[in-house]
Nucleic acid binder design. Sequence first.
DNA 1: TTCATTGATGGAAGCTGTTCCATTTTTCGC
DNA 2: GCGAAAAATGGAACAGCTTCCATCAATGAA
Lengths: 357, 357
Amino acid sequence: MAGIRDVARLAGVSQATASRALSGKGSVSARAREAVTAAASELGFVMSYHASSLASGRSHNIGVVLPFVNRWYFATLLEGANSALMDAGYDLTLYDFQGDRYRESVLGDFLLRKRLDGVLAVSLQLNAHETEQILAAGIPVVGVGGPLPEIPTLRIDDVEVGRRATNHLISLGHARVAHLGGEHEYGRNFEISSGRRAGYEEAMAEAGLPLREAWSLISDYSANDAYKETKQLLADAEERPTAIFCASDEMAFGAMLAARDLGLRIPEELSVIGVDGHEMGEILGLTTIDQFPRNQGTRAVERLLALVQDDDGGAAGPADELMQTRLVVRSSTSAPRTPDRQTRSGQSGSASTVGRP
Amino acid sequence: MAGIRDVARLAGVSQATASRALSGKGSVSARAREAVTAAASELGFVMSYHASSLASGRSHNIGVVLPFVNRWYFATLLEGANSALMDAGYDLTLYDFQGDRYRESVLGDFLLRKRLDGVLAVSLQLNAHETEQILAAGIPVVGVGGPLPEIPTLRIDDVEVGRRATNHLISLGHARVAHLGGEHEYGRNFEISSGRRAGYEEAMAEAGLPLREAWSLISDYSANDAYKETKQLLADAEERPTAIFCASDEMAFGAMLAARDLGLRIPEELSVIGVDGHEMGEILGLTTIDQFPRNQGTRAVERLLALVQDDDGGAAGPADELMQTRLVVRSSTSAPRTPDRQTRSGQSGSASTVGRP
DNA sequence: TTCATTGATGGAAGCTGTTCCATTTTTCGC
DNA sequence: GCGAAAAATGGAACAGCTTCCATCAATGAA
């Protein structure tokens, strides 16, 4: 295998010049550059990234840390990040927590091996110790949907998302609105889940609508689990809500299927709204709040590479960045069949008129 | 930052011994090992993988190449591969072609930078030039679902899968069976798609059932596209099939939704069978042929690491390995409502009795 | 007890580029 | 055409770990 030494010799220049010519850093005369390029391609030279990394301290390698590759949102965000990294000539090292299974090893071992120029942390919540650990490694980190203290983060306004989704349902005339979200406290994605839930609760309160404990469900974000939860929720025809706000589209799919299996028609008997922008929502007619995850991935990489490349300590741009979302109305939401007359003054349990075929 | 040199000094041994103690290679006395370990943890020593890789030629880094992270099958396989790699202490570098968008750069640049100990190539078809290129890089490669000439590959018997799925439908009494698969020729996944299609055609032929061109559909494997194709396929009530074999579960989802939207009941008016083992199949009641992609990922990594670790030139095990699949019968398939009387001798167009409400 | 092994250890030469520093060559303004 | 500043270049010192090789100690067989 040819080394840069051989290239230099063939091109008739010093190793230093050859290196400069190939990396584009430092000044090299056009003549020398051409000679080196020619020599390199003649020898089929490919640089050893190990050597290059060792000498320069840059590895052209970004780590992406996420809790599940297998969920649509993360896979799609990853795809976006991958695009941006490929375009910039960076490798992408994937760290998939798989829930929390590899959380410790990733945080404790893998990330510290300093072979990364930067880390993209998606939906990651770190405790004080972990934060310290990762910052001590001294590599730039950008988060998506954190929040990570002391780390620049891209996120959407989850409270606003929850409020908007809920208000969409309320404005259609729904008063009996349930929410299917993630864990209440602690656990992964806590902030995201609790943000959307808070938005839901705020919107309900603002409209003077009752919150029922039984209508505030917790799921693991999977369609299957959402299906089970929803089936249970809808079991009692007297006490069922007329609309569900799901914190992800995959959960919304589960909810829609559960409703159909119970013989409830969507949207006549149940309105469903999700969050994410999953393509399959198109064929299911799912109303959703699109958060453009692909775009989040590419944008996060841009931010990260900016940090990595000019080491100005992260002065570029505001620390946090709020990403856009868009309400996409499709056919899974409509006015409830028998509009609830529940008003501003409505009291909690007094379940008003419930439409019943 | 402490280097191994500092560790050695603190432990009172030579750098060579420190290296041996930490890597576990070569013989070191228990006393020395303990001293080194203690010194290392006292100094908070983390090895530089760049330096280690450069010196040893091993990077503890495996590349995974696949066409789409965003599709369930690939994401799930990736998850399996990730597990196995984490457990073995390897990093995973992801190369997502995103269709063919990055095919060239991955194959031409990224893979050759010799920073990988091995490559897992998923559903990748290489032409002669590309194969040569990748083999010339001299790193071990294991394929999944290739086939890749001269490269050990794990795969399922796609022809058999197609046959089994189709026979399941035929044995239920279906004679009007359509197939929704991938590209006919060239393009990505060619062999997989054409294998399943061939199995379908063989099974139909063996049962003496007619093949209709209009019932052999091509999709891009996405649910949305499958939805469109299926809707068109089912439009004509007279000429519609009573069952569809979809080459992936995601396509099957699309097909099921299309049928429902046309008011066709599943399985009474249309049976659907898929391939993959997508979890969401459970709540949709999708009959499928599970191919355990997660397992494929871990198994492929095992094979690859065996090649990487003992460089016996790949003598371990048979070159190719056939992976298991399992027919999972759920509620999306049943006998057709009005059984077709079509028999072994049945001729093509003579469409026998078609159930019509 | 002695010779042959096996085990443990240190010195030093890599592995392959990058980059600092000093030196030489150009380029330019006047 | 001259001096200063800028551009180009080469030498050599790294980056930080692994491993070959030689040496020395310990273990075991005879």
